[in-house]
């Protein structure tokens, strides 16, 4: 019994006891309070930093405008995410399966990471115009590498023992790749997907900054030019909310796809 009392004594404080969402809400309230405090204490003019209340008002008053542009950006982000993940996964599988491809494509992939992707945005605009496609492609490009590289790493690092079993079971290379290496790579791939979920909005917004006629990134630039700083912040809030929703949605999907992982965590807790 003395063991369990010792454990109780070692428990974290009040903040540690709160649930995830409650903790996030608390952090949000603290952030808004700090924001308001900066304005009250320094008297910074509202065209530099609008108050939380002004931003909230802009959110409500401009909701139609924000919703329209948010939908555009959301399409770009989701399109880029899905395209980038599929392409990255296909690359990882092909690299793991075909040795000649590994020799030629892998160095190219690594070299491609030396190109600052932001610098590609104007070129994509030049080639694909001002529509949705350059933004989707930008988001895809940003996501592609983390998914391909974490996926390939995961596929490569299958424990030898499982490969031995696959050999004695008489599996073909294709069966081994899809039924043994791919599920074994899921935890590693999951970290790539989480990275992708947080990077996708960056790609879309950069695409919009370079040249667009709609979308949240466009709205921010436009509002900035007109000194509608509250609208600019409102667009930013919507973008952050969408990015967070995407991240936690992907996180939840990953947890649902790997129930054994969650069980293990609970078993060890």
């Amino acid at each position: 019994m003395s063991d369990s009392t010792a454990l109780h004594a070692a428990r974290p404080g009040l903040i540690g006891k709160l649930h995830g969402p409650t903790r996030a809400l608390l952090a949000l309230i603290l952030l808004i309070a700090a924001w308001q405090a900066v304005i009250t204490l320094t008297g910074v003019p509202r065209y530099i930093l609008p108050s939380p209340l002004a931003v909230a008002r802009a959110l409500v008053e401009q909701r139609a405008l924000l919703a329209h542009n948010a939908l555009v950006t959301a399409t770009e982000i989701l399109g880029g995410f899905i395209g980038g993940v599929l392409l990255g996964l296909a690359t990882a599988l092909s690299l793991a399966r075909f040795r000649p491809l590994r020799r030629t494509l892998l160095p190219l992939l690594l070299i491609s990471q030396a190109i600052p992707l932001f610098a590609l945005a104007p070129i994509l605009m030049l080639w694909l115009g001002y529509g949705l496609w350059p933004k989707i492609l930008m988001a895809m490009l940003i996501i592609y590498f983390p998914v391909a590289s974490t996926g390939y790493d995961g596929l490569r690092q299958t424990p030898q023992g499982w490969l031995d079993l696959a050999t004695t079971f008489g599996l073909s290379r294709r069966q081994t790749l899809l039924r043994v290496q791919l599920p074994a790579a899921l935890p590693s791939l999951a970290s790539g997907l989480r990275m992708a979920a947080s990077a996708a909005p960056i790609g879309a917004v950069i695409g919009e900054w370079v040249g667009a006629s709609q979308g949240l990134g466009y709205l921010m630039l436009n509002a900035n030019a007109r000194l509608q700083i509250d609208v600019m912040f409102a667009a930013l809030v919507v973008l952050v909310a969408f990015a967070l929703a995407l991240y936690f949605g992907i996180d939840a999907a990953i947890r649902a796809a790997m129930p054994w992982h969650r069980d293990r965590l609970e078993a060890s807790a």
């Binding site: 008489g170 043994v180 992982h261």
Partner: peptide
Amino acid sequence: WMSQQDLLVPWLRVIGNVMLGTRWRG
């Protein structure tokens, strides 16, 4: 083949691990 490590795959339940050969061969 049986090795020092149990080689159970974490993504299948115990019954699935017993039938692993059948499952993997598909």
